[in-house]
Design a protein around this nucleic acid. Structure first.
Length: 483
DNA sequence: TGAAATGTTGGGGCG
DNA sequence: ACGCCCCAACATTTC
């Protein structure tokens, strides 16, 4: 099938390189119209926050700039996607629409409405697998049902990668088919986050395709050598910082996977081992998208049906303390301070604060999930929900309910000299030795010498972990125990 | 990608 | 030399 003009509808794929819908549209069409539709309802909803919106608008602005540099433009509209795209199709004479699949339930139902609306007008609609390496319905067990356990899923994924690799697609050179800027009609400016009630901060990671490429190059040029051994050290922070880029689509997953595969074939080197560990994280991402697409109920309910019976405690002062980083457990508070300040949190710390919320405080994991969506630049429904349900022991292949992180031991393990805690919590900077992990253990004489008083300079712990652990096990056992 | 409780082993101090 | 005890170190079980 050939089309004179096709629309490429950008969503969470704000880039020109390694863009499947763009490459396929260009193959089949003489001219390409690039479009984006702002959804004010989503932008004002509790499902996003300032870090994500800022990052996304950075990326949108750069995408527009890149298209303008090629003599074209991005048609930015606002409102209902179905009607806006129908209007654009009429204006531009397009007879086909291309977009990349989005597995979030709200997005899929919107896309169905868009496809129905456009087909009434005679347009052909093509959806492409792009956001994940393999489509969420492509990796199935021998009996054609979806995997629900990560390890066999990963094995199958890696096997498939040998026979059916998906190298990055060439979408940039085909971009010369882009229509001239004049052909698009009216288009909006890229908004500021403030237009939707979000305040931008200089501490947030900035979006855009060039920054994504630089982040990938920096990671593979340096941190990857020690990633396997240092990835759990929040002070060193040897992680890739690509997650917000993968979330907004300022880098393609195939580009990332190929970089990891190329290096992992480097045999027994430290970098090769690191590349394989990092690839495992990308496979976790595919896995959680696969879970969301095949079991969409996880978006609002536990994966494990029995867990619906859990009666979580009501959020109150302890919930507020968790959000603000005032729990009295330094590693938890330092992590939350990092999240609230930078719109990002080290992955290892996410597990610690999630265990604390769901096990020590017995609060609903969905509260934490929502908070992360609002405060993380990479808050992505599939991965975020997967991570929370893993921690809360309600998910597929989740941590067993009796696995309760000890925030002090975790702190001593991942931040042995307290460098991260001291950086994020200056009020504890002067505490020496092990007390930085547990300020209430500081000897009274020493505390006095330092001028440090618990309850004044730093909160007392809001729960006793040993007691909270026993309470958590008793809470979960009747529902999730021996089934 | 947990932590605590309980069990086992073996080296060394000591009478 | 021997048996006993202590306990660190490691392994296994349990939540």
């Amino acid at each position: 099938m050939r089309y004179a003009t096709s629309i490429v509808w950008f969503r969470r794929d704000l880039r020109l390189s390694d863009h499947v819908a763009l490459a396929r549209a260009a193959d089949a069409s003489d001219r390409i119209v690039c479009a984006f539709v702002l959804d004010p309802e989503l932008l004002r909803s509790a499902r996003v926050g300032a870090p994500i919106v800022s990052f996304f608008f950075d990326a949108l602005a750069e995408l527009r700039g890149a298209l303008r540099a090629r003599g074209s433009d991005l048609a930015i509209m606002e409102g209902d996607a179905a009607s806006e795209l129908r209007d654009l199709a009429k204006r531009s004479g397009a007879t086909a629409l291309y977009y990349n699949l989005d597995y979030e339930p709200d997005a899929s139902s919107r896309d169905v409405r868009v496809a129905e609306g456009l087909s009434v007008d005679g347009l052909e609609v093509h959806s492409c697998v792009d956001h994940t390496y393999y489509g969420a319905h492509e990796t199935l067990k021998a009996d054609r049902t979806p995997y629900t356990v990560f390890t066999p899923y990963k094995r199958r994924w890696l096997e498939r990668c040998e026979s059916d690799p998906r190298p990055p697609v060439d979408s940039v050179s085909l971009a010369r088919k882009l229509v001239g800027a004049g052909a698009l009609g009216a288009t909006l400016d890229v908004p500021e986050p403030e237009a939707y009630g979000h305040r931008r901060s200089g501490n947030f990671q900035k979006g855009g395709e060039r920054r994504a490429k630089r982040a990938l190059d920096a990671f593979f040029g340096n941190a990857i050598d020690t990633y396997a051994e240092r990835r759990n050290d929040p002070a060193a922070d040897g992680t890739s910082h690509l997650s917000p880029h993968l979330r907004a689509g300022t880098i393609g997953i195939r580009t990332c996977v190929q970089a990891a595969l190329d290096l992992s074939r480097g045999g027994g080197t430290a970098a090769g081992a690191s590349a394989r560990v990092w690839l495992g994280e990308l496979i976790w991402r595919d896995f959680f998208h696969h879970i969301l697409a095949n079991f969409p109920h996880v978006a609002h309910d536990p994966f494990v049906a029995a867990a619906k019976q859990l009666r979580y405690r009501e959020p109150g002062a302890e919930w507020d303390a968790w959000c603000d980083g005032r729990t009295g457990y330094p590693i938890v508070d330092a992590a939350m301070r990092q999240l609230n300040t930078y719109g990002w949190m080290h992955n290892r710390l996410r597990m610690i604060v999630a265990s604390f919320l769901t096990k020590d405080l017995l609060l609903d994991y969905r509260l934490g999930e929502r908070y992360f969506e609002q405060h993380l630049a990479d808050g992505d429904l599939a991965s975020n929900n997967g991570g929370w349900q893993w921690s809360a022991s309600t998910g597929t292949d989740a941590a067993p309910y009796f696995r309760v992180f000890n925030p002090i031991l975790q702190s001593e393990k991942i931040d042995p000299d307290g460098a991260f805690i001291r950086r994020m919590l200056p009020e504890l900077a002067k505490l020496g030795g092990k007390a930085v992990h547990a300020p209430w253990t500081l000897a009274p004489l020493e505390a006095e010498a330092l001028g440090f008083r618990l309850g004044r300079d730093y909160p007392e712990p809001i729960v006793d972990h040993a007691a909270a652990r026993l309470r958590a096990i008793a809470f979960f056992a009747p529902v999730l125990g021996a089934r």
